[in-house]
Design a protein around this nucleic acid. Structure first.
Lengths: 139, 139
DNA sequence: ATAATATTGTTATGTTATAACGTATATATC
DNA sequence: GATATATACGTTATAACATAACAATATTAT
């Protein structure tokens, strides 16, 4: 399924970003490129997310490009480094199983699942002593 | 640790609610009781959440009282019924382990973790045939 | 070609959350 | 008790995030 010009542009900006971007941050980087209002960004994001090409991080109100070919897998967990803003997109079968069993035991029929783990990535942990570390994003 | 009057009131409203409440919904129910601005609600929520007496549901921008005595356990997952709005607060050691192994393998040092599972609870699933079901909250 | 579907740009508005300020009220420490 | 220190308070204003509604255009299928 082909993307429209606007959807392409939003995806490109997300892909070249080093950290998750909010909708208004995206808009800023796209203004002068035909984008002039938040609606346009949200619309493109909506399509990208439905196609598994981008993800919304609920705890940050921000968006990232999917790192995988396409994300139509089961459960995806996000490891979010509060220090450098880096996102790791984790797919783990043991985690999926645990979740599956847990909800099955409760007779709960799961739709979509959000998992976001805040913390410190290995690089930041080794680069900086605990005391001098500063949070770039909300914990 | 004792709660102030305002914090008590917010907690009471949350406890007597049947579904998660947004900050402005809380404010509405508390106006005429000394509350006149969102800041007051957010401040009380902040304390309640830090003390493990309430939780924020990131996918709903809403708040619930903790169902446990006090929630200073490890990871808590929320099963959110999109049909009736009911919240189930799940603590599962297998899930915690899976998460623990997963991040350990990546040398990620976890702080707080958010897990929210949208879907349909058992009551709603049996009460209504799939086709006639309507979503009360976002999926 | 024509109908049905999706996307576009624009304007306006709704919803959620925080900043900044001065005041008040507790909680310790002396 | 007096004094410092921490929190909590109410108020006003504004920031940040997201959607509604509309008319126009472009795409796709029949």
């Amino acid at each position: 399924m082909p993307l429209t010009a606007n959807q392409q542009r939003v995806l490109e900006v997300l892909r070249s970003a080093e950290a998750p971007l909010g909708a208004y941050a995206l808009l800023e980087r796209l203004s002068g490129d035909g984008f002039s209002a938040p609606t346009q960004v949200y619309r493109a994001l909506d399509v990208l997310i439905r196609h598994g090409l981008a993800h919304r991080l609920e705890t940050l109100n921000a968006y990232v490009a999917c790192r995988h070919k396409e994300c139509r897998h089961g459960v995806t967990a996000f490891a979010i480094c509060d220090d450098c803003g880096n996102i790791d997109e984790l797919i783990d079968s043991a985690l999926s199983s645990s979740l599956g069993y847990m909800v099955e035991r409760r007779d709960f029929s799961p739709g979509s699942t959000t998992i976001e783990i805040h913390g410190t990535c290995s690089q930041c942990a080794s680069a900086l002593p605990e005391s001098t570390r500063h949070s770039r994003v909300k914990p």
